[in-house]
Amino acid sequence: MIRIRRPLRRALVLGPPTAWGAVAITYKLVCPAEQQGGLGARILTSAVFFAVGTGLILHVRRTLLHELRQVRRVARAAQSVLLRPLPPRVDGLNTAAAQLSADRAACVGGDLYEVVGTEHGVRVVMGDVRGHGLAALGTVAALLGSFREAAHDEPDLGRVLRRLDRAMARHLRERSRWEHPSSGAAPADSPVAEEFVTLLLLEIHRDGRLLALNCGHPWPYRLAGPTVTSLSRADPLPPLGPFPLPPDLPPLPCGDFLPGESLVLYTDGAEDARDNRGRFFDLRHTLAKLTGSHPQAILRTVLEALLSHTKGRTTDDIALLVLRNDRTGPRCMPLGARDADISGSAARARATTTHPQPTNHL
């Protein structure tokens, strides 16, 4: 089947230019006007060859546009497999996410995100690979593939981060051998040697307890009522890649993620976006107007504000992920309130048992 399609495709590609060339040669050889030397003959000859040249240019342009559309479809398909659409709800958390690539021709970027519901809680990853476009796509694939397995397998969030670190190191070694087969190692000035990724891991338990590990990534914003605050002010770890992880990786407690609150995770391309005057995009100010909104509304409004601020000319990949806690029930109460409620219930039960109400026996 392939042997039949390839000659047919080659004939379709080469047929129109060949036909246009045959028309021009035939006119040159047999047309009576071409044998004359007057002004009218020269104008007619110029018109014929102009038409032939225009036809060839249009054919080449149409062929290139067709191939470009095919490349973009393949890129979008690859991107949708890697950054697959998130489910609208994961274990009681409403989600919304989107990604803007700075490489508009390829429609792919170096940002990554994922939300997975596990027996250890809802685990979230947000990352930003150095660079953008097709060069960063392999690193994104390696990290996301590792996270989707480790999130279920590892009970400790620190061990999830170590799995991601090993996956990235293995990917860079394989890429180095592929790009430098003779030496087996990347030169010091090679892009592979300078590869790194900023990464944020979150773990959200059913009771709202929130843990985090941050490797050089911007801290998310917490939307609680009318206030917008950073999730933490702690110094992050170095990005993955150039530096080894420390021996101990205790997750950082970040308080409770209460019902009605939202978290907005983003890559630095959002806050680094500039307008034509060089002013940075004020993400926090934009979010302050959206407290209490649905994740989809937050995402849509922020993206519209970003594109309006930059006039659609983003210079870096941008990824946004919004989580909203819409859980209900006693299991979703804060730890302190839940413990106090349990203690109060136990005390009332003891009081009822110790001092029963008198009864009248008739």
Results as ranks from 00 to 15, higher is better:
M333Q: 10
H294N: 09
G92L: 05
R279Y: 03
R348Y: 09
G40K: 07
D165H: 06
P236T: 06
S230E: 13
G260S: 08
L65F: 12
P242F: 08
Y266C: 06
S343P: 01
G40Q: 13
V302W: 00
P218M: 03
R69F: 08
R233G: 15
P250E: 07
L82W: 03
L14Y: 13
R233V: 11
A347L: 15
D103K: 09
G127P: 02
S46F: 11
T291I: 07
T95W: 05
E203L: 05
R279G: 00
G260N: 07
W20M: 15
V116P: 02
R173Y: 02
C107R: 13
A102S: 13
R148A: 03
R348Q: 14
I43S: 10
L290Q: 02
L299E: 05
T328Y: 10
R84M: 07
P181S: 08
Y266T: 07
V197R: 01
T286D: 13
M1W: 13
I204D: 02
A97E: 06
E304K: 09
A98V: 14
W20H: 11
L211Q: 13
Q79I: 03
P32F: 06
R162I: 01
V81W: 09
G117H: 02
A97C: 06
P246M: 02
L335N: 03
T229W: 10
A340C: 09
V30Y: 12
